[in-house]
């Protein structure tokens, strides 16, 4: 008897490198890694045609854990590096991994402009409301009253709202996932890769070490009660008023993506000498 389903070209594990993650046992980021590898297998991609780009932080260690091409750059700059790569090499699938510190704080400006530029990238932000790699400081998404050594009385600052900011910055596709659901993440990531243009996927990914209470997120999350909207006004209202635990695609626009390299050259560089010749 034959197998009931044609074997996929590659299994999720074929997208993993042999390098062992340094994440704490229990960390949500393991699940994101699983979601990524499952999505890539599902999409029947080959690792050499995928690049995973990141900045600095726990989340940003992902590239080396895959056996895709990886770019582990400097803190906050994953999006620009990925933009350069995708524009220069449009045929590659480019995933960008970041965290709430890397992506919303030091890299905040790039986030705004990546949303409006709409280059065909899958932007996965693992949000755990804390700087983990530097051992427990408040991030832009940390609650104002969360006490830490750096902010002993809490920051007193209201949280950054990444989804609303993405919408206001012109993001064309906004989704929220949860690390407790690796298969759900895989489906969202696969959709993101198929979607032409910038796809912002915020993943609630608990930090079991510095925010152990986030283990409770699995009770809080729920599927978004309504289908994704393509009306930014309605999306804004929904995102502003949701409880932060709606999971799924929340906004789906139809803006054309940023185009890549110019078509075939019309001139050689030497031809341009006519601009200077007397």
């Amino acid at each position: 008897m034959n197998a009931p389903f044609a074997a996929a070209a590659l299994q999720p594990k074929d997208f993993k490198s042999g390098y062992k993650p340094v994440w704490c046992p229990g960390c949500g980021d393991y699940s994101v890694l699983t979601g990524v590898t499952k999505a890539l297998a599902m999409l029947e991609l080959r690792p050499e045609n995928v690049a995973v780009v990141s900045g600095i932080g726990c989340s940003s260690r992902i590239p080396a854990y895959t056996n895709c091409y990886g770019f582990h750059g400097v803190h906050g700059r994953a999006l620009p590096a990925a933009t350069g790569l995708k524009v220069a090499r449009p045929e590659l699938t480019v995933l960008v991994a970041s965290g709430d510190g890397d992506g919303y704080s030091i890299g905040g400006n790039h986030f705004l402009h990546a949303c409006r530029r709409n280059v065909d990238l899958t932007y996965i932000v693992m949000d755990n409301h804390v700087y983990g790699m530097t051992k427990g400081q408040p991030s832009p998404t940390t609650e104002p009253d969360w006490r830490s050594k750096l902010a002993p009385g809490g920051t007193g600052l209201r949280e950054f709202h990444p989804l609303v900011i993405a919408l206001a910055s012109g993001a064309n596709f906004i989704a929220r996932g949860f690390s407790g659901d690796p298969n759900g993440l895989a489906a969202l990531i696969a959709e993101a890769v198929r979607h032409p243009g910038f796809y912002f996927l915020e993943v609630l990914s608990p930090c079991v070490t510095f925010r152990p209470e986030q283990r409770g997120w699995k009770e809080a999350v729920h599927p978004a009660p309504v289908a994704p909207t393509d009306d930014p006004g309605r999306a804004a209202r929904r995102l502003m008023t949701d409880d932060g635990f709606n999971i799924g695609v929340l906004y789906k626009g139809s803006r054309a993506p940023f185009t890549g390299m110019a078509a075939a050259p019309t001139d050689s560089p030497e031809d341009l000498e006519c601009l200077f010749r007397l």
């Binding site: 008897m1 034959n2 197998a3 009931p4 389903f5 044609a6 074997a7 996929a8 299994q11 599902m42």
Partner: peptide
């Protein structure tokens, strides 16, 4: 089954 079935 001679080979590993994939997820449907």
């Amino acid at each position: 089954w001679p080979s590993v079935p994939a997820l449907p």
